[in-house]
Design a protein around this nucleic acid. Structure first.
Lengths: 116, 116
DNA sequence: GTTATATTTCAATATTCGTAGAAATATGGA
DNA sequence: TCCATATTTCTACGAATATTGAAATATAAC
C-alpha cells in the first residue's frame, strides 16, 4: 500500500459516523448490508450517508452493488489488511517482540451477539 | 478502546506528515527518536513538527521524555494494537476465515534495511 | 402510465485543520 | 553571566470537512 492510499483510508475512517458504518460492515462480512438498513441501524439521513459512503468507497474500504432498489455496501477486507500492514510495517526494526502486535480479527471482544 | 479514542487515533494518523512521523517511530521501536532527528529526516520545520507531535500525543499514539535539550518521542504500541483490534473487532461476525486478517508487524515488507 | 420506495446530487454554511513567521522557553557549555 | 542549541508557543490565514434541506434519479408495484 502506498502512503497516499493509507492517508485516504485513515481519513475515511477518522469520522464518527463513517467509523460506525465501516465497523458495521466489517462485522457483516462479505455479504454486506443495504444502505437503508444501515441508515435505520445508525439513525443517519440518507443524503449524509451517501456522502460518507462515497468517502469510504473512494478510499477502497467498501464496495457497492445494486440489488433492485437497494444499494448493498460491503467492506473490502484487502484494503483493511493492507492498511494494518502499512501501519505495522517493519515495526521495532523487525523485532516485533518489542511491540507485541495484535492478533487481528478476534472473534468477539465484548457484547457478543447471541447466535439466535 | 472506545469509539472516541479510535476516531482520535485515526484522525491523528490521517495526515501525510504525521503518518510519516508515526511510521518512523514505529520502526524505531521503544527507544524512540529525538525531535530534531525526526525533523532532519523528514525535512519538517520545528514548529510544524511540534504541532503534529501534539496531535499524536493527544491521541495516545506517542509518548515523550526529555533527554537534555532534546525531546525523545516514541511510539506507544498499546494504542496501535488497540486501534487494530477495534477495526477488526468481531469481523465477519466471528468467522475471520472470510476476511483473512493480516498478521501484524511483518519484519520488513520492502526496501529492507541492511543489517549493517 | 402513475405512484411509492431507495438512494443520490446539488448548493450553502459553520467548523476544523495545516502551515508559516516571529518570539519565547529550557537546557547545556564557556 | 553570556551564548548556542533544541523545542515550544502564539497569531494569522487559506483550504478542506460535515451537515442540512430541497430536488433529482432509478427501480419496483399497481
Amino acid at each position: 500500500m502506498e502512503q497516499i492510499d493509507a492517508v485516504a483510508a485513515l481519513a475515511a475512517l477518522a469520522q464518527d459516523n463513517r467509523l460506525d458504518v465501516y465497523r458495521l460492515l466489517v462485522q457483516s462480512g462479505p455479504d454486506g448490508m443495504a444502505a437503508g438498513a444501515i441508515a435505520d441501524r445508525l439513525g443517519l439521513a440518507p443524503n449524509t450517508l451517501t456522502f460518507h459512503f462515497d468517502r469510504l468507497r473512494a478510499a477502497g474500504l467498501v464496495t457497492v452493488r445494486r440489488d433492485g432498489r437497494s444499494m448493498i455496501y460491503a467492506a473490502h477486507f484487502d484494503t483493511m489488511n493492507s492498511l494494518i500492514g502499512y501501519l505495522t510495517d517493519n515495526c521495532c526494526g523487525g523485532q516485533p517482540e518489542q511491540c507485541a502486535p495484535a492478533a487481528a480479527c478476534k472473534p468477539s471482544t465484548k457484547r457478543a451477539r447471541q447466535t439466535a
